[in-house]
Amino acid sequence: MDAAVPPMVRLQGVSKVYRRGSVEVPVLESVDLSIASGAFEAFMGPSGSGKSTLLNLISGLDRPTTGVVEVAGRDLAQLSDAELADWRSAHVGFIFQLYNLLPVLTAAENVELPLLLTPLSRAERRRHVAAALEVVGLSHRRSHRPSELSGGEQQRVAIARAIVTDPDLIIADEPTGDLDRKSAEQVLDLFEALHHGLRKTLVMVTHDPNAAEHAERIHHLEKGVLQ
């Protein structure tokens, strides 16, 4: 890594402990991690190994019990809940296993959602939405609702939603977990295109070794410890 370029993600001594009643359950232990800007990295590990928790910390959805999480040069611990929400909308694109599209909105309206938090005009939002749908190859499906799309198409709409604000970081939590092999490959090809073509930083959690193969670097987590 070029020492002059600060990493996109930097974790230092990060631990996370959940409390179940009076019992403390450690999920992550002293994780140190650095992900370069423009990298495509995958996290693997068995269920309960802490990989989703790690993803939540990096994306600002959760806060560490101890340690520092810095993303795009910002220490997330310094941000209030509302500031963190604003920060996420400006810097992070989310891709979930179950797509999490709003079923009553069309593909284009779903993609437009994060743009509603920006000062862009309606016309500008339309242009961004068209471009994002073009990238994922779904311009012809812009007026369709999620129930009228296949699983693979829904996930591509979710990817369009994740990139429409041109975020620094794209977070994908089991993005192919609910897809057939062919759809999964299409999604992973898209990730590679985003990585190589648009130099996006992608962080993916997956159980699927074939999916992980597409990443530049694969991290393994075991019982909350980064191997």
């Binding site: 994306s59 959805l61 809940d81 509302a82 929400a85 604003d86 996420r88 909308s89 400006a90 989310f94 979930f96 179950l98 999490n100 709003l102 079923p103 959602l113 994060p114 938090l117 939603r161």
Partner: peptide
Amino acid sequence: IAELGMLRAVGFRR
């Protein structure tokens, strides 16, 4: 609930 969770995740405030 999941829809509302997604909205919060992408940056919509409480």
